[in-house]
Amino acid sequence: MSELAAQLLTPWHRSASASVGLYFYFIRLAFLKFLAYRVRYYTGVVSYTIFVTGHYYVYSALFASAVAESATGQLGGLSLPEMITYVAISWIGRSFYFNAIARDLARMVQEGEIAVMLIKPFHVQTVMMFEAIGESAFRLLMFTLPIMVVIVPLFHIQSAPDPMIYLWTFVSFCLALVIYSQLNFMLGCLAFAMKNIQGVLRAKMVSMDFLTGVVVPFTFFPEWFQVVMSYLPFQYISYVPVTIYLGKRQGAELQEALLVQLAWAVGLFLLGRLVWRVSVRNVIVQGG
């Protein structure tokens, strides 16, 4: 082997601290990138408020007609004020964890941009997750907070049963962000195998908010449905954090919910890495 050939073989590993530095840098960059497009989010505040308003009237009407027949004044285990709070917190949470990784990844694959990611010595999956975190940090400041300022007083949203719950709800939504981003990432990986995943993305658009519990709380559904959902990760994106906020999970139950959520986050991240490995092996980069 010539001298330079040997030199190329030099093992190279990024130190743990350098990795942290690098991936945090992606958070910063994503934040800056979205800041450049912040105007787009002002209209978002309006549309989220409209969603919540719509739900408010639907549930108010529902309670008015149904509650008369029940003695508890509850529907699906929730009172009307709880119900409204459920809806509002769901949407507030969604405004935080939401991202479009699947669409972005699919676009990069379809237009061949993925090539320039693949010639860089980093894990594309990790980069995309940290970019999603940066995006959510931006969303928290520029989107979630404004929405809270509008919605909370407007619909008399209940406060959490004790101050620590605010913290746990936030932690839970952060884990939700990881879970959501990894599901999205794996969905985007489908673009490596399929020519066109627009249909899949649209199906995801309509089903995701339903599966996570944003649209309707799970307690409205039959027992078997709730059992099935308890084995899937979707409820950890919205239903679980929101019920934590409502004080439906306390003490050991709260701990368990957060731990299972953490396990899902880690597990899906590892699964995502596997899916990526397999996908990249049959990558066909377009163009050039």
Binding site: M1, L4, A5, A6, Q7, L8, L9, P11, W12, L118, I119, K120, P121, F122, H123
Partner: peptide
């Protein structure tokens, strides 16, 4: 340089 590009991508790039 002794590396297989698509197999040792992280090292190679």
């Amino acid at each position: 340089g002794g590396l297989v590009p698509w197999e040792q991508r992280l090292q190679y790039t």
